[in-house]
Write a protein that binds this DNA or RNA. Structure first.
Length: 242
DNA sequence: GCAAGGTCCTTGCATGCCCC
DNA sequence: GGGGCATGCAAGGACCTTGC
């Protein structure tokens, strides 16, 4: 199965190189990730506009190194140069600056070319189109994500979402976790926490109001979930971002 | 795709801290 | 003192995994 094979390629590359990487599709959505934490560092570091620009450049350049001001480096290359519609790999963050080796994975710049060769060598069998992957899992998962994106402020039950998709709930759980590496609950909470960040930055509503408005049923559970995902309480996050 | 059992998520409450 | 928030805990139920 292509999706599983892609996952294996990324896992093998990660085990060999100790560099986190993710695969993004043409819509700049991360559909597979290896070695990253939540919240995803890519989404915190590169905007969708930047990713779109970088993906466009792949039609001329086979390899793009994108260096941020703080020294974090991302390397972008096509999943398969013959089939740019498959999307691309984003490798990193890492650094080529030896002075930052204590805070970021360090790789000399000249090594990256060889590591990309290794990545392509592992994944040389990828010649099918991404649509086959989508048909297998991502069609239903994408629909589920859209549903959560629209209805995050309301109570979302597994039953409701599974019947919306026309799937049995246990089967839906299986494919959702396979595609996102997260349970349906965790993903929903992650979306709600991300939405709450904007409201916290505005700094007008109380924590309870924000919790209720993004779909949490209590401030207590909102606090617990927010701290688990972000690493700080909602109040601490607000104080840091106002 | 379904069923069953175990897991753990979610809720509600209590308590304590901090600030006004 | 009162309001807002953080933290911890127990219990019920929703969810996930496994086997088919």
């Amino acid at each position: 199965m292509l999706y599983t094979e892609l996952e294996n390629v990324m896992e093998n590359f990660y085990l060999c190189s100790h560099l986190a990487l993710c695969a993004i599709n043409k819509n700049n959505h991360v559909f597979l990730s290896m070695g990253h934490t939540i919240p995803h560092p890519l989404e915190q570091s590169l905007s969708k506009e930047t990713l779109a620009t970088l993906q466009e450049r792949l039609s001329q350049d086979s390899l793009i190194h994108h260096v941020l001001e703080d020294g974090r480096t991302f390397t972008i290359c096509a999943i398969n140069p013959k089939y740019l519609e498959l999307g691309c790999f984003v490798i990193g963050p890492y650094t080529t600056d030896i002075h930052l080796k204590n805070v970021l994975p360090f790789k000399p710049a000249h090594c990256m070319v060889h590591l990309i060769d290794l990545l392509y060598a592992i994944g040389s069998s990828f010649t099918q189109t991404h649509e086959e992957v989508e048909e297998e899992y991502n069609y239903h998962v994408s629909k589920a994500k859209d549903y959560i994106e629209i209805h995050y402020a309301e109570p979302i039950t597994l039953d409701a979402l599974a019947s919306y998709l026309g799937l049995h709930k246990s089967y839906f759980c299986t494919i959702f976790k396979k595609a996102t590496k997260q349970s349906f609950c965790s993903y929903t909470n992650m979306v709600r926490v991300e939405k709450s960040k904007d409201l916290l930055k505005e700094g007008t509503d109380s924590i309870l109001e924000i919790a209720l408005s993004v779909g949490f049923s209590s401030a207590s559970y909102f606090n617990t979930t927010f701290k688990k995902l972000v690493g700080m309480t909602p109040i601490e996050y607000r104080n840091q971002n106002i």
